[in-house]
């Protein structure tokens, strides 16, 4: 595979990889490094790329593994630095909208960051990236029932907390 084909096939998923790494690591700098690492890894193994059926899911899986490796190395919780990443580029909203929404967005971001790791991963892949359950199974290397249980728990945990915050300001 030459560089041009690689750019056309692999580069379009870069932002999805970045967002997933960011969700796991809570730092845009580190997420950026992970995506670079993923691309280099995929490029080095480009000979086997033809055999891979779902390249995007495969790249997402590498992103997950590299991000978790980093977390293990650092032995820290990603929630500590979640606010640092809030300055990441936003393509569609105007500065005015961004300021208005920042508070509630930040609050939900924090709620999501406090979810257990697996629930956070499943919720991100389904609700933000719109992956099918089968794709999530492939990316996270877990079975379908685990995907559904984790998604159910994640959605309902966020819903409950959000209702409490809005009702009682908790």
């Amino acid at each position: 595979m030459n560089l041009e084909t690689f750019q056309n096939r692999v580069f379009p998923v870069k932002n999805k990889l970045f967002r997933f790494a960011f969700r796991l690591l809570g730092s845009s700098e580190e997420a950026n490094d992970v995506v670079q690492e993923v691309f280099i890894k995929v490029w080095n193994g480009r000979e086997q790329l033809e055999e891979i059926q779902n390249m995007e899911a495969w790249c997402m899986r590498i992103t997950k593994n590299l991000s978790l490796d980093r977390l293990r190395q650092q032995q820290r919780r990603p929630t500590d630095s979640i606010e640092k990443g809030m300055h990441v580029q936003n393509e569609t909203k105007s500065p005015h909208d961004t300021i208005e929404m920042t508070e509630s967005m930040k609050r939900i971001g924090e709620l999501m960051a406090r979810l257990p790791e697996r629930q956070r991963q499943v919720m991100h892949l389904r609700d933000i990236e719109g992956y099918s359950y089968n794709e999530i199974v492939e990316i996270l290397e877990i079975d379908m029932s685990q995907v559904k249980v984790n998604l159910f728990r994640a959605r309902n945990a966020v819903r409950e907390k959000l209702q409490k915050i809005n009702a009682y300001g908790l």
Binding site: F11, K14, N15, F18, R19, F22, N32, V35, Q36, V88, Q89, N90, E91, T92, K93, M101, S104, M105, I108, G109, M112, H124, D127, I128, E129, V158, R159, L162, Q163, N166
Partner: peptide, 22 residues
């Protein structure tokens, strides 16, 4: 509350890498 959550998903989906990445 739910609208807020869905807006959050939309906002998150628009986050992207810096332009000099590629």
């Amino acid at each position: 509350d739910t609208a807020e959550l869905f807006r959050f998903f939309e906002t998150e989906k628009n986050k992207s890498l810096k332009e000099n990445f590629e």
